[in-house]
Design a protein around this nucleic acid. Structure first.
Length: 874
RNA sequence: GCGGGUGUGGCGGAACCGGUAGACGCGACGGACUCAAAAUCCGUUUCUGGCGACAGAGUGUCGGUUCGAGUCCGACCACCCGCACCA
């Protein structure tokens, strides 16, 4: 029989129009059915949709369509994370206004997303740069301020002294500004902070309840929050004649007080008050402090830098032995933000301390010996020992375990006194710091604050909200245009009517994305949320996005939900009940003879003698095939979804994105892979038409008796249905794809074998075809509609309930057991499902291979695992 | 540097709770159909040896636990992600 090829370009817009007409995906917030909220991380409107988006949204769409078929009221909204740096860069480079650039991009990307056929409720669309959205965000900020969750303090930024502008970490390359090339400095600015640390304990302990989050994300958050139990220890400073030093003491935070007798130096952060004070009168130290500050503000930069220190000349006295004096250094790897900004170095048991000690010739005394090691022979070369063991070289601690030694040191130092106060105190410390949200940029949510010379910091009154970004700004000079926009900046104080100026900092874009999931539940409300509606839909049942957001975005959102609860906007703590982190889309890279990157669209790949060779399309020049990397513009290894949609259609792109690779892992985009997916689309179309011709008409009841061939097909269909259902629930889309292929294979074989099927087979053919279409529907919705219609249905698959697998067709009454001899498979036997172990054992003893294998050796044991395996041990 | 992850045929991967390693797809090879090509259909395809039945090896490396290890434990190697102003 002949069937015309399935024409995706013609069919896809047609079905999309059908869905739209019937408003199938618009969520009625009051829908009485059980609800289900599916959300994918909303995109930054960078200009065009990329394949990573297609993958992310295809996954969410499978879940949304499946849950709808399962009878849930599904909310599946989409919006735009629309504030951020790239819009300002575009303004500088292309002379377009950030607003125009952003809204143009949104328009393009919206069209692209619509072409993918996602079951989104576009009536809930939001863009974070809409005043309608950021007005509500300003209200939230003011509520947080009232609740004591926002405050101002000094903190550091990367400062470009040539451009006179603040740089983001990504704009600092090897310690220099990306445009000016000037050495970056650190500057202290007064900035706004949100008190995420108020919730440290809860953000940590609540992780245990997030059972539908990946374990790795919970672990990363746990480590990020970083609760540690340690000791604050006061070290008295020895009198230092000739050294310009503040007298007194250095307070150190340590989680390893057990290693106190292995201490060989103290190290201060470059921002430590003592270091700063001493720098005043000491040009050499002052120069060193400046050098430390040029490293930039990122922790990664600080910690990967070569360990450097400066001996202050100060000496600290050991808390247990006043006659033991240790040198006090300023070191570039000590962070002021953590603990007290001062540490004691125990080189034998901390790698950083060891590197430092080796660089400056400081003593290295091991004080913990690995279990069972001879204390006399314990030496440390270039690797610090951070394991458990037994205390050595530690006077009264010798022989104790490190944890007992910890307690003993704490007990003694808590009792000892220095200047009338205990030498040490136990302290729970957190790595988590408060969240600095001030950004010295234009394209962000204005912080609704007015600074008055008389009244100080004054919140913008409710009736003056929102504080809108002015449109008339220029980017012809570096720095924040809001700062030089006098008409916008200069206002009357709402309290005293005196001269005042607006806060010109805008908010970190992470703020925008920390509550959008709540806003989606009432996207047009005049308050940030409508609490009852938010509480009805939240938490998000399934959240899907990249691992790169595993810590910051997710932690900030968890904090925001708590802060919104504290200010009465929602009634829950955790925003995302289920989380899934998907992998990236990667692609081969190509380079020409001169080492320039070449785009995949510009080359042809041919297979010759098993080797793949690439040539340039226009001139046939040889191209080198490089490594597989994350798709990026700079490496030109990007594939434009528009091209794919134009050539193959949305269903093919969606299908390929979910095939093969497990969703949490990276998927490699290959031309042959897409072609395979495209072939499958056509194959399904042929199978469906063939089955429609040979099968029984729609709605025919099952025949009374079913022969073995028909039953076998029915088993394949119901088996696939059960597998797909289970695998969608667990987001294992690649397994759904495999199951679909298997069912298509089974259906194909049955159709091939039957020119004129009898009633039972005719029924099985139709049933299998319908099940195939229904399990494909969440993945390839357009093809599924076209097929459903070809099978004679007047309704849409998108409105059809999910079919039920017949349990009788899932179970089999015989099983095949592999037979192993000494753990190696030698044969297999087929027995009744409920055969007892003794009968199986008897059967196995008779097998040729077993008899031959054991020869004259005695059988030591026969292990029978019911329904699994038999192992004969000789 | 610190934290987290990944590693299985020529390639992407499957393998449930420790129980037949390689499902399914891609590629390759052979065949059918065709004047021919495309499309489609059928078959083979982990490696080594053998015409073959079959035998041996095999899940990044080294070691361990077990009747049995891709799966559990220890050490290591390689690559990827995050590190608080990219989103």
């Amino acid at each position: 029989m002949t069937t015309e090829r399935y024409n995706a370009r013609e069919a896809e817009p047609r079905w999309q129009a059908s869905w739209n007409e019937r408003k199938l995906f618009q969520t009625d917030a009051g829908d009485a059915r059980p609800n289900y909220y599916v959300l994918e991380m909303f995109p930054y409107p960078s200009g065009r949709i990329h394949m990573g988006h297609v993958r992310n949204y295809a996954m969410g769409d499978v879940v949304a369509r499946y849950k709808r078929a399962k009878g849930f009221a599904v909310m599946h909204p989409m919006g735009w994370d629309a504030f951020g740096l790239p819009a300002e860069n575009a303004a500088i480079e292309k002379k377009v206004h950030p607003k125009a650039w952003t809204y143009d991009n949104i328009a393009t990307m919206r069209d692209q997303l619509k072409a993918i056929g996602l079951s989104l409720d576009w009536s809930r669309e939001i863009a974070t740069c809409d005043p309608e959205y950021y007005a509500q965000q300003q209200k939230l900020f003011l509520d947080f301020l009232k609740a004591g969750l926002a405050y101002r303090r000094q903190s550091k930024v990367n400062w470009d002294p040539v451009d006179n502008t603040v740089l983001a970490n990504e704009q600092v390359i090897d310690g220099r500004g990306w445009r000016s090339g000037a050495l970056v400095e650190q500057r202290e600015l007064t900035q706004w902070f949100l008190k995420i640390t108020d919730f440290s304990e809860d953000l940590l302990s609540a992780l245990d309840g997030l059972t539908r989050w990946p374990e790795k994300v919970r672990t990363m958050q746990k480590n990020w929050i970083g609760r540690s139990e340690g000791l604050l220890v006061r070290w008295p400073l020895a009198d230092a004649p000739g050294v310009n030093a503040p007298a007194g003491e250095v307070e150190v935070y340590t989680t390893r007080p057990d290693t106190l007798f292995g201490a060989s130096f103290l190290a201060l952060s470059a921002d430590h008050p003592i270091a700063k004070a001493m720098g005043e009168g000491n040009p050499a130290l002052s120069a060193f402090l400046d050098e430390c500050r040029r490293a930039g503000t990122s922790v990664a930069a600080l910690e990967t830098a070569e360990k450097k220190g400066f001996d202050t000349g100060l000496k600290a006295k050991h808390p247990f032995d006043p006659s033991w004096e240790l040198p006090v250094y300023v070191a570039n790897f000590v962070l002021m933000d953590y603990g007290t900004g001062a540490i004691f170095g125990c080189p034998a048991h901390d790698q950083r301390d060891l590197d430092f000690a080796r660089a400056y010739g400081l003593p290295v005394t091991p004080v913990v010996a690995p279990e069972g090691a001879d204390p006399a022979s314990v030496t440390i070369e270039n690797v610090a020992f951070d394991g458990d063991g037994v205390m050595i070289n530690s006077r009264f601690l010798d022989g104790l375990s490190p944890s007992d030694a910890f307690q003993e040191v704490a007990r003694r130092l808590e009792a000892d006194e220095l200047d009338g106060r205990p030498v040490a105190a136990r302290k729970v410390n957190w790595r988590l710091r408060d969240w600095g949200i001030s950004r010295q940029r234009y394209w962000g949510c204005p912080i609704p604050i007015i600074h008055c010379e008389a009244c100080g910091v004054v919140p913008v009154p409710d009736d003056q909200l929102p504080v809108r970004l002015p449109d008339d700004v220029t980017f012809d000079q570096p720095g924040n245009p809001l700062d030089r926009h006098d008409a916008w900046r200069n206002v009357a104080c709402p309290q005293c009517d005196g001269p005042a100026r607006r806060e010109t900092d805008t908010m970190d874009t992470f703020v925008d994305s920390s509550w959008y999931y709540a806003r989606f539940t009432s996207p047009r409300a005049a308050s940030p949320t409508v609490k009852a509606t938010a509480d009805r839909w939240l938490p998000v049942d399934q959240y899907i996005g990249g691992v790169e957001h595993a810590i910051l975005h997710l932690l900030y959102s968890r904090f925001f939900t708590r802060a919104m609860k504290a200010t009465g906007h929602v009634g829950l703590d955790e925003p995302f009940a289920g989380l899934f982190t998907q992998g990236m889309v990667v692609h081969e890279t190509y380079k020409d003879a001169s080492g320039q990157w070449v785009a995949p669209a510009d080359i042809r790949i041919a297979e010759e003698g098993g080797a793949r060779r690439a040539t340039r399309l226009d001139d046939g020049a040889p191209i080198e095939i490089g490594s597989i990397e994350k798709m990026s513009k700079s490496k030109k290894n990007v594939v434009d979804p528009n091209d794919i949609l134009g050539t193959y259609g949305a269903d093919t792109a969606r299908w390929f994105m979910l095939s093969d690779s497990p969703p949490e892992r990276d998927v490699i985009w290959t031309e042959s892979g897409v072609e395979g997916a495209s072939r499958f689309v056509q194959r399904v179309w042929r199978l469906v038409n063939d089955a429609a011709a040979k099968g029984t008409p729609t709605g025919t009841a099952a025949p009374a008796s079913v022969g073995p061939a028909a039953e076998s097909l029915r088993r394949a269909a119901h088996g696939a249905l059960a597998r797909v259902e289970d695998d969608i629930e667990r987001l294992r889309f690649n397994r759904c794809v495999a199951a679909s292929y298997e069912l298509a294979n089974a259906l194909g074989q049955a159709l091939q074998a039957e020119a004129a099927p009898a009633d039972d087979m005719a029924f099985a053919l139709r049933e299998a075809a319908e099940i195939l279409v229904q399990i494909l529907a969440p993945f390839m919705p357009h093809l599924a509609e076209e097929s459903w219609s070809a099978l004679g249905h007047a309704t849409l698959v998108a409105e059809t309930p999910w079919p039920k697998a017949d349990p009788a067709l899932l179970a089999s009454d015989v099983v095949t057991l592999p037979v192993q001899v000494n753990g190696k498979k030698r044969d297999e036997i087929t027995v009744a499902r409920d055969a007892d172990a003794k009968a199986i054992e008897a059967l196995v003893r008779e097998l040729d291979v077993v008899v031959k294998a054991i020869g004259d050796k005695p059988i030591r044991k026969i292990i029978v695992v019911p329904q699994r395996i038999v192992n004969v041990v000789v």
